[in-house]
Design a protein around this nucleic acid. Structure first.
Lengths: 201, 201
DNA sequence: GGTTAATGCAACTGTTTGTTGCAATTACGC
DNA sequence: GCGTAATTGCAACAAACAGTTGCATTAACC
C-alpha cells in the first residue's frame, strides 16, 4: 500500500480505467481548457469514481502530465519527396492537423494556461513540442546538401518559423486554421530560408 | 439600483477605488497569472472589501477585461524612415518590448488563456491587437507604391507574420526574446513579402 | 478458487466563491 | 454647510468544490 494503486495489478480493469481516464482528460482539456478541467469532471466523463482518480494520480497536474505524455506517439507525417517546397507544405499541413486535433488542441490550451502554474506540466509540453520540431531536420539537411538552402541553415529555428504563424492564428487571433494557411506558412518560411535568415554563424 | 454601482456618483472615493482595483488586478495578473487571480485577492490588494468588487464588476472576466482595456493606451512606436527593412526591424523590436515588459508578458498570457474561457476577454484581445496591427499599414502601402513590395501585399497578414515568431518564443517555447530575435523576425517577413507570400488575389 | 489489490460508495471536513441584510460612510445637489 | 441617497464595509450566510476516509464490493493474479 506504500505504492500508488495500479502498479500491483496493472491488467484488466485497471488498464481499461487508465485508458478511459487519459482519454477523458484529453477531451476535457480540449473542450473546456485547463482550469475548467477538474478531477471530478474527468472521472464523470470516464465513467469512473473520483476516488479512483484521486488515489492513482493524486493531483490534477500529474493527471494532465500523464495524459499528455500518453499522446507522445501521435506523429506528424514526415514527408520525403525531395521537393523542399512540397515537403515544407506537407509538414505545415501536418502541424495544422495536430493543432486542430483533440490532442493538439488540448496541448495548446494547456500550454497557455496550465503551464504557467505547474512546472511539471510545462516540462511535458516542452518535450511534446520538441519531439515534433525534430521532424524537419532531415529535410533541411538534405536541402542544404543539395545547395537548395544556404549552408548553416538552422533547421530547428526554421521549424519554429514554420509553426509560429499557425500557433498565432490559434492562440492570438483565434482564427480558424485551414490548409491554405498552412501553405502560406510553408511558402513564407521557404522564402526566409532561401534568403539566409536561418543561417547561424 | 437597477444600474450597477459606481454610475450615479462616479467621483471621489468611487473613482479612487476603481483605479486602485484596476491597478491591483494588473499587478495580480502579472505576479500570479490569470487562474491564480481571484476577486478576493484583488480586493485585498486594493484595500477594498470584496463586496465592492463583486457589486461593481460582477465577474472576474469583466474585471480582467476592464483592467486590460486600461492598458490599451500603451503604444508601439511607429517607424517612418522609408527604409522598409529598418522600419520592419523597428516595429519588431517594438513588439518585442511590449511582449517582454513585466506587465506586457503577463497581460499577453492572460489574454491568451483567459480568452479561451471568456468571450468577453477574447473580444478585448481582438481589439487590443487589431489596434496594433494597423501600425504597419502605411509602411507597407508606401513600399508597395515604390515598387519595393509586390502589388496587393496584405499588410495585416504581414504584421501577423512579423509578430508570430516573437509570440511563439514567449508562449510556446518559453524562450527569452531579445532584439536579435526581433531582427530575425523582421528579416524573415521581409523575405516572404518580397517573394509575394502576402499577395492577395 | 483464494487472497488481496483495486474500485465504488457515501459521508465527511475544509476551502473557496458569491450573496444578502444592515449599519456606517460619503459624494453630490441644494 | 447640509440633507439625502448612493456607495461601501462588515459579518454572516449559502452553495459549490476539492480532497479524504472507512467500508463494502468486485475482480486481477497466483
Amino acid at each position: 500500500m506504500s505504492q500508488p494503486p495500479g502498479t500491483a495489478r496493472p491488467g484488466g480493469r485497471t488498464a481499461q480505467n487508465r485508458a478511459a481516464v487519459v482519454e477523458a482528460t484529453l477531451a476535457e482539456l480540449a473542450e473546456r481548457g485547463y482550469d475548467q478541467t477538474t478531477i471530478e469532471s474527468v472521472a464523470l466523463r470516464a465513467g469512473v469514481h473520483k476516488t479512483t482518480v484521486y488515489r492513482r494520480w493524486r493531483t490534477k497536474e500529474r493527471l494532465v502530465a500523464e495524459a499528455l505524455e500518453a499522446t507522445a506517439e501521435v506523429q506528424i507525417e514526415v514527408p520525403d519527396t525531395g521537393d523542399l517546397a512540397l515537403d515544407l507544405q506537407t509538414l505545415a499541413r501536418g502541424v495544422r492537423a495536430v493543432l486542430t486535433s483533440t490532442v493538439g488542441s488540448a496541448a495548446v490550451r494547456t500550454l497557455v494556461s496550465g503551464a504557467q502554474s505547474s512546472p511539471e506540466v510545462a516540462q511535458v509540453l516542452r518535450t511534446f513540442w520538441a519531439g515534433r520540431l525534430t521532424k524537419v531536420i532531415p529535410i533541411v539537411e538534405r536541402a542544404v546538401a543539395d545547395g537548395r538552402l544556404p549552408p548553416g541553415t538552422d533547421s530547428i529555428e526554421l521549424m519554429k518559423y514554420l509553426a509560429a504563424p499557425l500557433f498565432h492564428r490559434v492562440l492570438v487571433t483565434a482564427e480558424p486554421v485551414n490548409d491554405k494557411d498552412a501553405d502560406r506558412a510553408a511558402a513564407a518560411v521557404l522564402a526566409a530560408a532561401r534568403a539566409g535568415v536561418f543561417v547561424v554563424i
